[in-house]
């Protein structure tokens, strides 16, 4: 997909009149027939960091994602919301090809990072993941020391030339993750000994130690208590200055608090993408409205 296409699409012409017709239809039943062919709102932007075109995902015979078109802008925080099972996590895992690790998962369509296809044979999945890092739903620190957890990425990628440089990376990453003050005296203790929130921030520190360009977060707060959640959300806001962040969340409040744009997924289809404020105050699509007003989810 060329850049000109994207530019055209970003004007919104391609998605013209859809919303009004849908909004008129206020019946309560939800069926796939209501889902638009292409997402309403502003799925495409100019000069995107990542672009996705006609993305399909299959698990064996079953199709989980249908023809998704979406752009992620540079240094934005984009939230993906939707009822459970809508495919938002699956979609997120496509962006750094984490789905490769799942047997009989097939991805179709085109995904580009800085205008290079991530499925390109020349582009390496290892360096892709170094550029597009990921934080998972459940904190998953390695059964190693805190220091080793953060140093793991730089070590395998050979980012540090010596011990001092590695120490520096570890310290900055932990600082960026807001964990440094809490753990600086016990770097050699196992990472599994930290509290849930600390573990998740450790995983974020681990991800940013590789200095990725994009960070994917798959419901990073779902296993955490409200206080830890608040800390992570603060952290996301700070990180958004340097990184592009795509976050999947089941909490609409969280999406509203942390993101610049919000994408709503429904049964494997991307239904609506818009500025977060627009999505939450004035959703264009009936399904989006139904979801954010809590009628299903």
């Amino acid at each position: 997909m060329s850049l000109t296409d994207t530019a055209d699409a970003s004007t919104g012409l391609a998605f013209g009149d859809e919303p009004s017709t849908v909004q008129e239809n206020s019946s309560m039943d939800v069926s796939t027939s209501d889902i638009p062919e292409t997402a309403v709102g502003q799925p495409l932007v100019s000069d995107p960091k990542m672009t996705m075109r006609n993305v399909d995902v299959f698990y064996g015979e079953k199709q989980a994602i249908f023809k998704v078109n979406l752009d992620i802008a540079r240094n934005e925080v984009i939230a993906m919301i939707g009822p459970s099972g809508c495919g938002k996590s699956t979609f997120l895992r496509c962006l750094n090809r984490m789905n490769d690790t799942i047997v009989d998962c097939r991805v179709g369509g085109q995904i580009e990072l800085d205008e290079n296809s991530i499925f390109d044979a020349k582009l390496d999945v290892v360096s892709l993941r170094a550029r597009v890092g990921m934080v998972f739903q459940k904190p998953n620190p390695f059964p190693k020391s805190i220091y080793e957890n953060v140093a793991y990425g730089p070590k395998i990628h050979g980012l540090a030339s010596g011990r001092t440089e590695l120490d520096e990376i570890v310290e900055t990453s932990l600082q960026k993750a807001g964990l440094w003050d809490e753990v600086k005296d016990r770097l050699q203790e196992p990472g599994t000994g930290l509290s849930g929130g600390q573990q998740q921030r450790l995983c974020i520190a681990r991800a940013i130690a590789v200095s990725p360009e994009v960070i994917l977060m798959d419901e990073p707060c779902s296993a955490l208590d409200p206080i830890a959640t608040a800390k992570i959300e603060e952290l996301i806001a700070e990180l958004s200055e340097n990184f592009t962040i795509a976050i999947v969340t089941h909490s609409m409040q969280q999406a509203a608090r942390v993101s610049d744009r919000t994408a709503y997924f429904h049964l494997g289809y991307l239904v609506e993408v818009n500025d977060t404020e627009t999505v939450f105050t004035n959703p264009s699509h009936r399904l989006t409205e139904a979801y954010i007003t809590g009628r299903f989810g």
Binding site: N96, M98, T101, V125, V126, S127, L128, R129, A130, G133, M134, V135, F136, K138, N140, P141, F142, P143, Y152, G153, I156, H157, C203, R206, A207, V210, L216
Partner: peptide, 19 residues
């Protein structure tokens, strides 16, 4: 989840297994 954590950082399979 351990493996995912490692793959997510860009580790190869053998690095994930060994480390």
């Amino acid at each position: 989840a351990m493996r995912d954590g490692s793959y997510g950082l860009g580790a190869t399979r053998s690095e994930t297994i060994r480390k």
